[in-house]
Amino acid sequence: MATETNGVIDTSSARQEILRWIRAANQGVADSQPVAQQWDRIERPYRRSATRSREEILELLEDRLRDYDANVVRTAEAEVAAAAAKMLAARGHKRLLIPGGLNPAWLPAGFDYVVDDGASPAALDGFDGVITGSTVAIALTGSVVLQNVPGQGRRAVSLVPDHHLCFVRVEDVVETVPEAFDRLKATSTLPTTFFAGPSATADIEMTRIKGVHGPRFLDIILVE
Protein backbone atom coordinates (compact mmCIF):
# COMPACT_ATOMS: atom_id res chain seq x y z
CA MET A 1 0.00 0.00 0.00
CA ALA A 2 1.08 3.55 -0.60
CA THR A 3 2.25 5.06 2.64
CA GLU A 4 1.63 8.70 3.34
CA THR A 5 3.35 11.02 5.76
CA ASN A 6 2.40 14.70 5.92
CA GLY A 7 1.06 14.63 2.41
CA VAL A 8 4.17 12.94 1.00
CA ILE A 9 3.17 9.72 -0.65
CA ASP A 10 5.67 6.89 -0.86
CA THR A 11 4.86 4.31 -3.50
CA SER A 12 8.31 2.81 -3.85
CA SER A 13 7.22 -0.64 -2.72
CA ALA A 14 4.42 -0.67 -5.29
CA ARG A 15 6.96 0.43 -7.88
CA GLN A 16 9.30 -2.43 -7.04
CA GLU A 17 6.52 -4.95 -7.15
CA ILE A 18 4.95 -3.75 -10.42
CA LEU A 19 8.33 -3.74 -12.15
CA ARG A 20 9.00 -7.23 -10.82
CA TRP A 21 5.65 -8.45 -12.16
CA ILE A 22 6.40 -6.92 -15.57
CA ARG A 23 9.84 -8.49 -15.62
CA ALA A 24 8.38 -11.90 -14.85
CA ALA A 25 5.64 -11.46 -17.46
CA ASN A 26 8.16 -10.57 -20.15
CA GLN A 27 10.54 -13.43 -19.49
CA GLY A 28 9.15 -15.38 -22.42
CA VAL A 29 9.72 -12.57 -24.92
CA ALA A 30 13.18 -11.46 -23.78
CA ASP A 31 15.36 -10.25 -26.64
CA SER A 32 19.14 -10.20 -26.28
CA GLN A 33 19.52 -7.12 -28.49
CA PRO A 34 19.75 -3.73 -26.77
CA VAL A 35 16.35 -2.01 -26.60
CA ALA A 36 17.46 0.83 -28.89
CA GLN A 37 18.36 -1.67 -31.61
CA GLN A 38 15.05 -3.44 -31.22
CA TRP A 39 13.34 -0.09 -31.65
CA ASP A 40 15.35 0.54 -34.82
CA ARG A 41 14.03 -2.74 -36.21
CA ILE A 42 10.42 -1.50 -36.14
CA GLU A 43 9.35 -1.31 -39.75
CA ARG A 44 8.11 2.08 -40.92
CA PRO A 45 6.94 1.66 -44.49
CA TYR A 46 4.40 4.49 -44.18
CA ARG A 47 4.80 7.80 -45.98
CA ARG A 48 7.39 10.00 -44.32
CA SER A 49 7.96 12.66 -46.93
CA ALA A 50 6.00 14.92 -49.23
CA THR A 51 4.58 13.71 -52.53
CA ARG A 52 2.96 16.97 -53.64
CA SER A 53 4.38 20.20 -55.01
CA ARG A 54 4.76 23.21 -52.66
CA GLU A 55 1.75 24.92 -54.16
CA GLU A 56 -0.38 21.78 -53.86
CA ILE A 57 0.66 21.43 -50.22
CA LEU A 58 -0.34 25.01 -49.42
CA GLU A 59 -3.66 24.58 -51.20
CA LEU A 60 -4.30 21.36 -49.34
CA LEU A 61 -3.63 23.05 -46.01
CA GLU A 62 -6.00 25.90 -46.85
CA ASP A 63 -8.64 23.45 -47.96
CA ARG A 64 -8.35 21.29 -44.84
CA LEU A 65 -8.39 24.31 -42.52
CA ARG A 66 -11.51 25.68 -44.21
CA ASP A 67 -13.12 22.26 -44.00
CA TYR A 68 -12.94 22.75 -40.25
CA ASP A 69 -14.43 26.22 -40.31
CA ALA A 70 -11.25 28.25 -40.06
CA ASN A 71 -11.04 31.51 -41.98
CA VAL A 72 -7.87 31.38 -44.12
CA VAL A 73 -6.04 33.90 -46.30
CA ARG A 74 -2.66 33.70 -47.97
CA THR A 75 -0.66 36.87 -48.36
CA ALA A 76 2.81 38.19 -49.08
CA GLU A 77 4.97 39.13 -46.11
CA ALA A 78 4.55 42.85 -46.84
CA GLU A 79 0.75 42.60 -46.79
CA VAL A 80 0.42 40.67 -43.54
CA ALA A 81 -0.52 43.61 -41.32
CA ALA A 82 -3.17 44.76 -43.80
CA ALA A 83 -4.66 41.28 -43.97
CA ALA A 84 -4.70 41.06 -40.19
CA ALA A 85 -6.36 44.48 -39.93
CA LYS A 86 -9.12 43.35 -42.23
CA MET A 87 -9.77 40.15 -40.24
CA LEU A 88 -9.80 41.94 -36.89
CA ALA A 89 -12.05 44.67 -38.20
CA ALA A 90 -14.45 42.10 -39.64
CA ARG A 91 -14.89 40.64 -36.18
CA GLY A 92 -15.04 44.09 -34.54
CA HIS A 93 -12.18 43.15 -32.23
CA LYS A 94 -10.12 45.89 -30.61
CA ARG A 95 -8.35 44.68 -27.49
CA LEU A 96 -5.90 41.94 -28.30
CA LEU A 97 -3.54 39.79 -26.35
CA ILE A 98 -0.12 39.01 -27.85
CA PRO A 99 2.71 36.84 -26.57
CA GLY A 100 6.10 38.44 -26.19
CA GLY A 101 8.33 38.16 -29.24
CA LEU A 102 5.66 38.34 -31.92
CA ASN A 103 6.93 40.07 -35.07
CA PRO A 104 5.67 43.69 -34.66
CA ALA A 105 5.68 44.21 -38.43
CA TRP A 106 2.76 41.79 -38.69
CA LEU A 107 0.57 43.78 -36.29
CA PRO A 108 -1.64 46.43 -37.87
CA ALA A 109 -1.90 49.87 -36.31
CA GLY A 110 -5.15 51.00 -34.76
CA PHE A 111 -5.69 48.16 -32.29
CA ASP A 112 -4.87 47.82 -28.60
CA TYR A 113 -2.24 45.18 -27.96
CA VAL A 114 -1.41 43.84 -24.53
CA VAL A 115 1.71 41.71 -24.19
CA ASP A 116 1.07 38.65 -22.02
CA ASP A 117 2.58 39.09 -18.57
CA GLY A 118 1.22 35.93 -16.97
CA ALA A 119 -2.23 37.33 -16.27
CA SER A 120 -4.81 35.18 -14.47
CA PRO A 121 -7.20 33.00 -16.48
CA ALA A 122 -10.04 35.37 -15.66
CA ALA A 123 -8.05 38.29 -17.02
CA LEU A 124 -7.27 36.37 -20.22
CA ASP A 125 -11.00 35.83 -20.61
CA GLY A 126 -11.44 39.58 -20.91
CA PHE A 127 -9.64 39.96 -24.25
CA ASP A 128 -11.40 40.14 -27.62
CA GLY A 129 -8.83 37.82 -29.10
CA VAL A 130 -5.24 36.65 -29.26
CA ILE A 131 -2.64 36.83 -32.03
CA THR A 132 0.20 34.30 -32.26
CA GLY A 133 2.70 32.82 -34.66
CA SER A 134 3.16 29.06 -35.09
CA THR A 135 5.90 26.44 -35.27
CA VAL A 136 4.73 24.12 -38.01
CA ALA A 137 1.56 23.27 -39.94
CA ILE A 138 0.52 19.93 -41.44
CA ALA A 139 -1.37 20.11 -44.73
CA LEU A 140 -2.70 16.55 -44.74
CA THR A 141 -4.49 16.96 -41.42
CA GLY A 142 -5.15 20.70 -41.42
CA SER A 143 -3.22 21.08 -38.17
CA VAL A 144 -1.22 23.99 -36.80
CA VAL A 145 1.32 23.40 -34.03
CA LEU A 146 2.17 25.93 -31.33
CA GLN A 147 5.04 25.68 -28.88
CA ASN A 148 6.09 27.79 -25.94
CA VAL A 149 8.58 29.99 -27.81
CA PRO A 150 8.70 33.76 -28.46
CA GLY A 151 5.79 34.78 -30.65
CA GLN A 152 3.63 31.83 -29.55
CA GLY A 153 3.77 32.07 -25.78
CA ARG A 154 2.33 29.99 -23.00
CA ARG A 155 -0.55 27.64 -23.71
CA ALA A 156 -3.24 29.59 -21.85
CA VAL A 157 -2.74 32.59 -24.11
CA SER A 158 -4.01 30.86 -27.24
CA LEU A 159 -6.73 29.06 -25.34
CA VAL A 160 -8.84 31.36 -23.21
CA PRO A 161 -9.67 34.26 -25.58
CA ASP A 162 -12.56 33.39 -27.86
CA HIS A 163 -10.82 34.45 -31.07
CA HIS A 164 -7.42 33.29 -32.29
CA LEU A 165 -5.59 34.92 -35.21
CA CYS A 166 -2.63 32.77 -36.12
CA PHE A 167 0.24 33.46 -38.54
CA VAL A 168 1.67 30.48 -40.40
CA ARG A 169 4.79 31.03 -42.50
CA VAL A 170 4.68 28.97 -45.69
CA GLU A 171 8.17 27.62 -45.01
CA ASP A 172 6.74 26.05 -41.84
CA VAL A 173 4.11 24.10 -43.76
CA VAL A 174 4.76 20.39 -44.31
CA GLU A 175 2.62 17.82 -46.03
CA THR A 176 2.67 14.86 -43.66
CA VAL A 177 2.57 14.17 -39.94
CA PRO A 178 6.02 12.49 -39.85
CA GLU A 179 7.63 15.55 -41.46
CA ALA A 180 6.12 17.68 -38.69
CA PHE A 181 7.47 15.39 -36.00
CA ASP A 182 10.86 15.53 -37.62
CA ARG A 183 10.81 19.32 -37.17
CA LEU A 184 9.42 19.17 -33.64
CA LYS A 185 11.92 16.58 -32.42
CA ALA A 186 14.55 19.12 -31.34
CA THR A 187 12.07 20.95 -29.11
CA SER A 188 9.98 17.98 -28.05
CA THR A 189 9.92 18.85 -24.36
CA LEU A 190 8.37 22.30 -24.84
CA PRO A 191 4.67 22.62 -24.08
CA THR A 192 3.11 21.83 -27.47
CA THR A 193 -0.41 22.21 -28.80
CA PHE A 194 -1.78 20.95 -32.10
CA PHE A 195 -5.03 22.50 -33.24
CA ALA A 196 -7.15 21.71 -36.25
CA GLY A 197 -9.85 24.30 -36.66
CA PRO A 198 -11.76 25.95 -33.84
CA SER A 199 -12.82 23.89 -30.84
CA ALA A 200 -15.55 21.39 -31.68
CA THR A 201 -17.55 18.47 -30.40
CA ALA A 202 -19.61 15.70 -31.89
CA ASP A 203 -20.89 14.35 -28.60
CA ILE A 204 -24.52 15.14 -29.35
CA GLU A 205 -25.85 12.74 -31.98
CA MET A 206 -22.48 12.86 -33.71
CA THR A 207 -23.32 16.31 -35.07
CA ARG A 208 -20.19 18.42 -35.33
CA ILE A 209 -20.70 21.61 -33.37
CA LYS A 210 -18.18 24.37 -33.67
CA GLY A 211 -16.95 26.00 -30.52
CA VAL A 212 -17.16 24.54 -27.07
CA HIS A 213 -14.36 25.61 -24.73
CA GLY A 214 -11.42 26.59 -26.89
CA PRO A 215 -11.48 29.63 -29.20
CA ARG A 216 -14.65 29.55 -31.26
CA PHE A 217 -13.28 31.79 -34.00
CA LEU A 218 -10.11 30.99 -35.86
CA ASP A 219 -8.37 33.13 -38.47
CA ILE A 220 -5.24 31.90 -40.22
CA ILE A 221 -2.89 34.07 -42.27
CA LEU A 222 -0.47 32.11 -44.45
CA VAL A 223 2.59 34.29 -44.84
CA GLU A 224 4.51 33.97 -48.11
Binding site: Y68, T141, G142, F195
Partner: peptide
Protein backbone atom coordinates in the same frame (compact mmCIF):
# COMPACT_ATOMS: atom_id res chain seq x y z
CA UNK B 1 -7.90 13.63 -39.86
CA UNK B 2 -6.50 14.99 -36.62
CA UNK B 3 -8.16 15.72 -33.33
CA UNK B 4 -9.11 19.38 -32.98
CA UNK B 5 -6.60 19.53 -30.13
CA UNK B 6 -3.54 17.52 -29.12
CA UNK B 7 -1.57 18.60 -26.07
CA UNK B 8 1.94 17.44 -25.27
Amino acid sequence: RMNPYNSI
